[in-house]
Design a protein around this nucleic acid. Sequence first.
DNA 1: GATTGGAACG
Length: 456
Amino acid sequence: MVCRLSTRLLNISIAGFCKSRQLEKAEAVIIDGIRLGVLPDVVTYNTLIDAYCRFVSMDAAYTILPRMREAGISPDVITYNSLLAGATRNCLLSQSLDIFEEMLQSGIHPDVWSYNTLMHCFFKLGKPDEAYRVFRDIILSNLSPCPTTFNIMINGLCRNGYMHNALGLFRNLQRYGFVPKLETYNILIDGLCKAGRLGAARSVLKELGESGLKPNAITHTTVMKRCFKSRQFKLGLEILSEMKSEGHTFDGFAYCTAISALVKLGKINEANDCVVQMIKNGIVLDLVSYNTLINLYCKEGKLEAAFNLLDEIEKRGLECDRYTHTIIIDGLCKAGNIEGAQQHLSYMNTMGFDSNLVALNCMIDGLCKAGQIDCAMKLFESMEIKDSFTYTSLVHNLCRARRFRSASKLLLSCLKGGMKILKSTQRAVLDGLSNSGYTSDARKLKSKIWSARLLH
DNA sequence: GATTGGAACG
């Protein structure tokens, strides 16, 4: 009895250190415990596995398994659920499916948490049908679905373009007496916002208020972002000041939403004020926050400050992602440092981001603006995937360089690929051809544009 | 002892 009680205390202490990311201290507590004769149990190891998944890596989490076995403790359903959640959270989705398979083969029965996570994994993989099959299995089996099951389902439907079904499920559930929590409302509001249905989002927001729940920072951030996106800047700024005056928790998400919106509005001073407040409020910067700040510094031409933050990212043990690289490449291009941008591009490629379409588009645009259209064309030809930004940038700049026949060729392959291109850019190609004497080419292009439109 | 919701690039 004494020993079991001590193990419980040991686990509480370990959970505390794990929660605050102090894994070395958690490990030290285990060693001290063993020295005093207090042995870790399955809870101890599960807590550790969860923390390693969250804060270190999946590989680190896997190293706990042999340690457990050495101590004579078998993994249980929670062990597997933690690994499953870790892999899914880190988007290692095929690994998630393997873990689920391994769980079945070890004779451990998955519970509703396992199925919830599996469902989430299928949604992340863009396989809503498979996710729905899991959902149906949960309903039809003896496992009873929990509120999280419904939240994951509604969120997954929203993210996979099934807004209508998400809303339908929500209404059906309400009919059966399901009382939505704030999370559910936030999921729906975000889905509606991302689908561009600001009006519907507002009425769900109203429903939220009427249900007696109070919107939180997540709700406000979601709506604020949508306002900025649909160019309702005044309303967005109002929500921002409302959040401040009503004393809502202003967290990293809210600050980053506001800062990047202000940068896009060209309100650089206000954006910097926000940065000062964010730092003052003790927000610990994560990669997204660094990217947001680097973008701000690039937009105001403070490349040195941007590169200082790049160093800080490394010092903190974080890794730059495709956003960081794109922001830097675009920043260097806009500052007229094409050589630097090209250097960073090859560095990005060595880091495994060689199919970063947005960064390549920035580079193409930068090369064109610097008058190196042939370089841009070469890069274009080496690209496996192109989108309408790639084409628009090149066609536009080919026109400016009066190379209308090349522009015409690219314009056509763009439209044939089913991609849109600005009407004004199309006009520039047609006018350019006619005005420089290629009247029949212009006519042919015009009819080809028509037929391409008919086909798509 | 654990699963779900909001932020960043052209």
